[in-house]
Design a protein around this nucleic acid. Structure first.
Length: 376
RNA sequence: UCCCUGAUAGCUCAGUUGGUAGAGCAAGCGGCUGUUAACCGCUGGGUCGUAGGUUCGAGUCCUACUCGGGGAG
């Protein structure tokens, strides 16, 4: 496993925990810090493969729970695995279904064995255990599998956080024992809510189990961003420096830079695609709500220097597409946002290489907080 | 010429036995963080066709008129 998956640190910042690395997998390398678009059902919604590649994405996500319900991991395997099935030839990371235990909690019963779901599609019972999650992910054939974890919403009383955290460690061990495929790396997930000492304990115990990568989970589930940043700071020092660190489900552009500043290497989030479909475009000047009337006759692109296909059109045109409910509107804004996120992490990588990341960080946060651009 | 029927928000329409009006869509704005989301939420907006009458009180009842739809001759 160590030979197939390597993580090389090219440079670590002197002034912060930011670091520039390369994560290598049998299906290609990933320049870090990296942002991974979310492709829950074997597609990054509304974005074709070449476009996704052109946006700069190197690794994408898939989801164990969703794909096992539809079309089913056996079907994906029969069609050649998730890569052949979807057409994405680069690295794929599959989430374990742990987040769905949380987000579909009304339909799930959780105990030490695992979680029993009612399918959100047809109400059928789904039995998701650590072993089953690994078996599904091996059938899907992703390059990185995630351990099944127990996520709790925040804020939450310490007792429940602690219980879920220790259970997550035991489930991580069971996932590790169940994993068979040497071509698939298994990442562990640190839980512990907003309790710094629980975060530390979890990080240390998982580190002792020696995983090829570590994720920080259970954040951006209701807590203010400052608390999320504090939890990253409480966790990162207790993770092995030579392994990639993945902040799950995060986040807004400012969250990404705050994560990088604190030593995170990998990010994923639905925000660029979902918010894009919902008519919000990201930019260096903050969000652009393209439905707003002020863009009706705005001939400028979303961003002047963006190479994405959406930025070959005017804001007025993009607004028209949304008001007319044309599917191209959501597609173009999703593509723009993915491109924006990729350009953001690319700039961050360059800045780390040049030893100027902290300045880049301050300039960007300042630009977003000013929140407006020069008048037309 | 007569009879019937309709006129309520920008649009299509609800409005119980009379107690000064609602919905959907549209519009404006906001939210979205390991996707149950091309989704969800909030807001604005109407001298109830016009003029009279009955009534304590009329979008609701009566009369006339205007405009639209249907029918008879």
């Amino acid at each position: 496993m160590t030979s197939l998956f390597t993580f090389d640190l090219l440079r670590c910042s002197d002034a912060s925990s930011a670091r520039r690395g390369v994560f290598s997998t049998p299906r290609g390398t990933v320049q870090t810090p990296a942002f991974m678009p979310v492709g829950t059902l074997g597609t990054v919604k509304g974005v074709e493969i070449e476009t996704l590649r052109a946006s700069g994405a190197e690794m994408i996500l898939g989801n164990t729970y969703h794909l096992s319900l539809r079309p089913g991991e056996e079907t994906v395997a029969a069609l050649g695995g998730l890569h052949a099935f979807s057409g994405w030839e680069g690295p794929i990371l599959t989430d374990s279904g742990g987040f769905q235990i949380f987000s579909l909690a009304k339909m799930a019963k959780i105990d030490e064995r695992g979680a029993v779901f009612r399918s959100h599609i047809d109400g059928r019972i789904v039995d998701l255990t650590p072993e089953r999650s690994i078996a599904i992910q091996e059938k899907l054939g992703s390059d990185i599998a995630m351990v099944l974890d127990h996520v709790v919403g925040l804020p939450c009383e310490r007792g429940r956080i602690e219980e879920a955290m220790y259970r997550s460690i035991r489930w991580a061990k069971r996932c590790q024992d169940a994993a068979r495929n040497p071509k698939q790396a298994l990442f562990a997930i640190v839980q512990g809510g907003l309790e710094p000492d629980l975060r530390r304990i979890c990080a240390e115990e998982l580190t002792a189990l020696d995983f090829p990568g570590y994720a920080i989970g259970g954040l951006s589930v209701g807590e203010p961003p400052e608390q999320m940043y504090e939890m990253i700071e409480a966790t990162v020092p207790h993770l092995p420096a030579e392994k990639p660190r993945y902040l799950m489900g995060v986040g807004k552009p400012e969250d990404i830079l705050n994560g990088i500043l604190r030593g995170i290497d990998l990010f994923d989030c639905v925000m660029p695609t979902r918010n894009g479909r919902n008519a919000m475009g990201f930019s260096d000047h903050g969000p652009i709500r393209i439905r707003n009337a002020k863009y009706e006759r705005d001939s400028r692109p979303l961003e002047d220097d963006c190479p994405c296909p959406g930025c070959k059109r005017s804001r007025g045109y993009l607004r028209h597409l949304f008001l007319a409910k044309e599917m191209l509107g959501p597609m173009l804004l999703a593509i723009h946002n993915l491109t924006y996120y990729q350009r953001l992490v690319a700039r961050a990588r360059k800045a780390i290489e040049h030893g100027t990341f902290e300045r880049f960080y301050r300039e960007r946060l300042d630009g977003w907080s000013r929140g407006h651009e020069p008048a037309v």
